[in-house]
C-alpha cells in the first residue's frame, strides 16, 4: 500500500502526510481537522466504493459515506489500534451503516445489492498509483471470491452485501439452516486461506 499522492490535495502539511493512520487517529481524537483530512483522502475511494456496492444508488452511498466519516471524526477517541487497522475499522463502520440503510429498502434492492455484477460497470478511471494498486487488489479479491463454489459465494454475498440473516438466506435458497451456516464458514475459511500471503504485502 502506498500513500495517497493526488495532485492538488489540500490536506495538512508534509508532516501529517508522512504519518501512519494510527498516529493520525490520535490527532483526530484531539480534534485535528487536518489530520482527519489526510484520513479522508486515503480512504474516501474505498469508503464510497463499499457504500455504493451495498446501497447501489449514488445518493444513498454518499449519505452513508458522509455519515461514516463524520462518525469517525466524532468518535476518533474510541479507535483502538490493538483491534485492527484504521481502514478495517472505517470500512466496518461503513458496512454497518450501509446495511442499516439497505435494510430500510425493499427486498428487490437488497437482492440487487448482493449481485456482484451490479456495480461492475461504473468503475472510475485509474488515476494514481494508489488507485491502480487498489484496483488490482479488488480484481484479485474478486478472483478469490469467484473461485469459491457458487453456493458458498452466494451465501456470503447475500449476507455481507445484501444484509440478509442466515434464516432469510436459507428460506430464499430452500436450504437447511445448518447448510447455510456451514457454507458461510467454509467460504470464510477459504477466503482467509487465500489472502494469508497477501496480508504481509498490504
Amino acid at each position: 500500500m502506498a500513500t495517497q499522492r493526488r495532485s492538488g490535495a489540500r490536506a495538512g502539511g508534509t508532516g501529517l502526510r508522512q504519518l501512519g493512520d494510527e498516529d493520525l487517529m490520535q490527532l483526530v481524537a484531539g480534534g485535528d481537522a487536518r489530520a482527519f483530512e489526510v484520513i479522508y483522502e486515503r480512504h474516501c475511494t474505498a469508503v464510497f466504493s463499499l457504500a455504493y456496492r451495498i446501497c447501489g444508488v449514488r445518493a444513498a452511498a454518499e449519505e452513508v459515506a458522509q455519515e461514516a466519516f463524520l462518525s469517525i471524526w466524532r468518535s476518533g477517541a474510541r479507535y483502538d489500534r490493538t483491534r485492527g487497522s484504521v481502514r478495517t475499522w472505517l470500512l466496518g463502520v461503513v458496512h454497518n451503516r450501509a446495511i442499516d440503510s439497505l435494510r430500510r429498502s425493499t427486498v428487490h434492492d437488497r437482492l440487487r445489492a448482493a449481485d456482484e455484477t451490479a456495480a461492475e460497470r461504473v468503475e472510475a478511471p485509474e488515476r494514481t498509483e494508489v488507485e491502480v494498486a487498489r484496483r488490482d487488489e479488488a480484481r484479485s479479491m474478486r478472483a478469490v471470491l469467484g473461485a469459491l463454489p457458487s453456493e458458498q459465494r452466494r451465501v456470503v454475498e447475500l449476507a455481507y452485501f445484501g444484509g440478509f440473516t442466515h434464516e432469510q438466506i436459507a428460506e430464499m435458497l430452500g436450504a437447511p439452516l445448518g447448510t447455510v451456516k456451514g457454507r458461510m464458514r467454509l467460504a470464510l475459511e477459504k477466503m482467509r486461506a487465500s489472502i494469508e500471503p497477501r496480508e504481509a504485502v498490504l
Binding site: C44, S49, E62, E123, A138, L145, M191, I195
Partner: peptide
Amino acid sequence: AGVDALPASVPQVEAPPELR
C-alpha cells in the same frame, strides 16, 4: 480476516468531490 477482505473485492468507484 476473511470478512475484512470482502470490502477489498468491491469495484473501486471514485467518491464525488462534493462529498469531500
